[in-house]
Amino acid sequence: MTPPVGQEWEPVCRLEDLEVERGAAALVHGQAVALFRTHDDRVYALANHDPFSRASVLARGIVGTRGEVDFVASPMHKHAFDLRTGRCLDDDHVSVASYEVRIESGVVQVGSRQERRASA
């Protein structure tokens, strides 16, 4: 079972510990989470697990844009995931969990798992 995700904001690292347009894995509430810092210094958090290859690797993918959407391409077989929602851009039926993120005095904090609106 999925362990209940803590309600607390968990400080993870400093913003400058993250490479721009690249990811890093972190352990948050016991979960492997992939943090991504975009070129304009926004930070997103997705579950690190690539549902296609079933390996914990998303943090190691290339970050870019598809149209207006910031995304990461899984390093395994290049499936693209929307950084904001975790939705897979190549397959509507697949998505990964995404987490709330905020930056307080230069420290990246990860919060609870984002509620997802059921897709049509």
């Binding site: 579950a47 690190n48 690539d50 997802r116």
Partner: peptide, 25 residues
């Protein structure tokens, strides 16, 4: 047997300490 080809994941996935979820439609 299912992951290697990078195809569609047929079932919701829960693995070890990571969460990978298929969208519940």
């Amino acid at each position: 047997g299912s992951g290697a080809g990078g195809g569609r994941t047929p079932e919701p996935v829960l693995v070890a300490a990571t969460i990978g979820v298929r969208e519940q439609a």
